[in-house]
């Protein structure tokens, strides 16, 4: 387990900034105004990046590397080529700071949770002025985050789209907790 290097931090932030707005800086803000206030940090452990409280990360040092399975919230993993891939486990953090959102109707929830893209007929609401290929967080109509993806069309173009046309490409959905149960938390 180690902190991130500069290029790693940059790639991570660049990826997160696809989905979040300027409020991303609250992610690393100290929890209170004390001089030695606890804060959240990023830690890399077996190519996975964890968002964890500093005090907890310090405690986790006492666990040997091969025995340490996970700590804090897993955001995703660094590929061998140095890119970063977000996991569905990062959804609570993304949902909190999301910039563009898509609300899916009740009839579109299941298709999305089974790994389908979001078609126009299933969309209940969407954020205005959303450009093409922009990261969005997908919510159900009662504001429960279901996953995240990338817009296929800008909002204006999507208006003209036919009902079966794909509006948002799925990247991760909550169904992965079941579908990818074996690989999501396995470290080997």
């Amino acid at each position: 387990m180690r902190p991130l290097t500069e290029p790693e931090t940059q790639t991570l932030f660049a990826k997160l900034a696809n989905y979040t707005g300027t409020s991303l800086k609250n992610l690393i803000a100290p929890l209170d105004n004390g001089p030695n206030a606890d804060r959240f940090v990023f830690r890399l452990h077996q190519s996975r990046c964890y968002y964890v409280r500093l005090s907890l990360a310090n405690l986790a040092v006492s666990v040997s590397r091969d025995k340490l399975l996970s700590l804090g919230t897993c955001l995703g993993k660094f590929t061998k080529s140095g890119k970063f891939r977000l996991h569905i486990t990062a959804l609570p953090i993304l949902a909190e700071h999301a910039r563009y959102k898509v609300w899916v109707k009740a009839n579109g929830e299941m298709p999305f949770l089974y790994g389908g893209h979001v078609v126009k007929a299933h969309i209940g609401r969407w954020s205005e002025d959303c450009p093409e290929h922009q990261g969005v967080v997908v919510y159900s109509m009662n504001d429960t985050p279901l996953g995240f993806g990338v817009t296929a069309r800008s909002t204006q173009e999507a208006r003209r789209l036919d009902p079966t046309g794909i509006t948002c490409f799925r990247q991760a959905d909550c169904g992965e907790y079941l579908r990818d149960e074996d690989t999501l938390f396995a470290t080997s």
Binding site: R2, P3, L4, T5, E6, T9, Q10, F13, A14, A17, N18, T22, L24, K25, I28, P30, R39, V41, P131, Q134
Partner: peptide, 26 residues
């Protein structure tokens, strides 16, 4: 070895740079 970024200030500067970049792109 590697140079780690663990202090808040440097992380904030990286974040600000990345944010500005993304803003421009959008």
């Amino acid at each position: 070895g590697k140079v780690f970024v663990d202090d808040r200030e440097s992380m904030m500067t990286i974040l600000a740079m990345v944010n500005a970049d993304k803003e421009g792109q959008i």
